[in-house]
Amino acid sequence: MDDEPWPGVVEVQFTDAAGRCWSLVDKAPIFAAMGELGPDSAYPVEVTVACAVAGGHGLPENDEVVTVSTSPHGVTTPDGREEFTVRQDQLIR
């Protein structure tokens, strides 16, 4: 989105379990600690977002979807949302 302030701000998009597209905006290192995001990067780039299972201590074994919170790094949508229902196959343990 912008190279200022350094290290730059990026918008990350993902689709939840219901098919709705969401945007998260934050500094590049929040999404890619190894410097994969920069002015010369070829976008789109696959990144990860730190999250925690909401209201639990682990992933439910038999559910196809799970509610997660992006609160570990304080990442939210522009309107402040931090909880999302996603498919389990979208998560990396």
Rank of each mutant, 00 (worst) to 15 (best):
G38T: 08
G56L: 02
V75M: 01
P44R: 00
N62R: 14
P39G: 07
G74M: 03
T48R: 12
G35Y: 09
S41W: 05
P39N: 03
P60V: 12
G80E: 04
N62Q: 11
D40P: 14
A28C: 08
G56A: 11
G58P: 05
V66D: 05
A28H: 00
V49W: 06
P78T: 14
S69E: 01
N62H: 05
T67F: 06
P44N: 05
E61Q: 14
V75W: 06
G35W: 10
E83I: 03
A54V: 06
L59S: 14
H57Q: 03
S41C: 13
A50L: 06
P29N: 15
E46Q: 08
L59F: 05
G58C: 04
V53G: 07
T67M: 02
P72E: 01
N62G: 05
E64L: 14
D40N: 06
E36D: 06
S71P: 02
K27Q: 14
P39D: 11
P29T: 15
K27F: 09
P44S: 11
V68D: 00
V47T: 13
T67N: 00
V66C: 01
S69F: 00
D63H: 08
T77C: 14
E46W: 11
E61S: 12
G74P: 15
A50K: 08
P60G: 15
G55I: 09
E64P: 09
C51F: 04
E46A: 10
P44V: 09
G56H: 11
L37D: 02
V66N: 05
G80Y: 03
A32N: 07
G38P: 02
I30V: 13
E61D: 15
H57A: 02
S41N: 05
V65D: 11
K27W: 09
V47A: 06
A32E: 11
A32L: 15
G35N: 11
T67C: 13
D79A: 08
G74I: 06
S71E: 01
